[in-house]
């Protein structure tokens, strides 16, 4: 009963939340974009500082989504929560998308600032590895037909892959690299001027809400799929039963 009750309650909640979350996310992104383009040019980086307003939030999201994916996987694997694997699967492609955005905008920011598209430093390399881990996770879901099996196997992979998340986070502190260290999430006052901080935070909120908006829809899609599968299996069984 629990397996049925839970997705149904989730569906009710999701149906109610989807539209407001989409609306809020688009509003934040539009306001954020406006603020990003009206921010003054940086004295050092000039206009290219505007790339920061998508690069940094996307990088935060790539880590957040992976953490979310790992926690959902643990709920699925250890606590056998019926929605755990589904929640993880629904998040994976979105996380991969944000990681790809991080890598591409990073390259486009690096070219005018450092004079090269890519440097093999710890931060960039570990984010690339994060992207590969997302891909491996997605391939597992493609490779294994049975969703219950795929859920368990991919969860183990997700948990193993989590070792990379702290490496990404702290790579700039542990190794001296070209990449600048965190300038917002410091315990003392942020090193970033408020002209840049506010657009950054609004964009980050927009990305976060966009993630939830997309995730809610993907969750509902997965639950639809599950329902259809159960029903079709049931139809096959009953038709077999009447035949014999």
């Amino acid at each position: 009963m629990l397996t049925y009750a839970n997705p149904n309650r989730f569906m009710q909640l999701a149906r109610r939340l989807t539209r407001p979350v989409w609306g809020l996310s688009l509003a934040c992104l539009i306001i954020g974009l406006y603020m990003a383009f009206s921010a003054p040019a940086d004295y050092q980086q000039g206009m290219t500082v505007r790339i920061m307003f998508i690069h940094v939030p996307a990088a935060w999201m790539s880590l957040f989504v992976y953490t979310f994916l790992t926690v959902s996987s643990i709920f699925g694997l250890v606590f056998r929560h019926p929605l755990g694997h589904v929640a993880a699967k629904s998040a994976a492609l979105i996380g991969a998308g944000f990681t790809l955005i991080t890598l591409i905008t990073g390259a486009l920011w690096g070219k005018p600032m450092w004079g090269t598209w890519w440097v093999w430093d710890a931060r960039l390399t570990s984010v690339l590895v994060l992207f590969f881990i997302y891909l491996g996770y997605l391939f597992i879901w493609k490779a294994i037909e049975d969703p219950l099996q795929a859920g368990r196997v991919s969860s183990v992979l997700a948990i193993v892959g989590f070792v990379n998340v702290p490496i990404v986070k702290f790579s700039v502190d542990w190794w001296n690299t070209l990449h600048q260290p965190a300038s917002v999430s410091r315990f003392d006052a942020p090193a970033l001027h408020s002209d840049y901080l506010w657009p950054l935070l609004v964009m980050a909120l927009g990305f976060q809400l966009l993630f939830f908006a997309l995730w809610l829809l993907r969750m509902q899609t997965e639950i639809f799929k599950q329902k259809l599968r159960v029903r079709r299996l049931g139809l096959v069984e009953t038709s077999n039963g009447t035949a014999s």
Binding site: G46, M47, T48, R50, I51, I54, H55, A58, I101, I104, T105, L108, W109, K111, P112
Partner: peptide, 12 residues
């Protein structure tokens, strides 16, 4: 810089 900024926002 317009090229890099435009491309970043475009790709995103």
């Amino acid at each position: 810089h317009v090229f890099y900024i435009g491309l970043s926002y475009g790709v995103t």
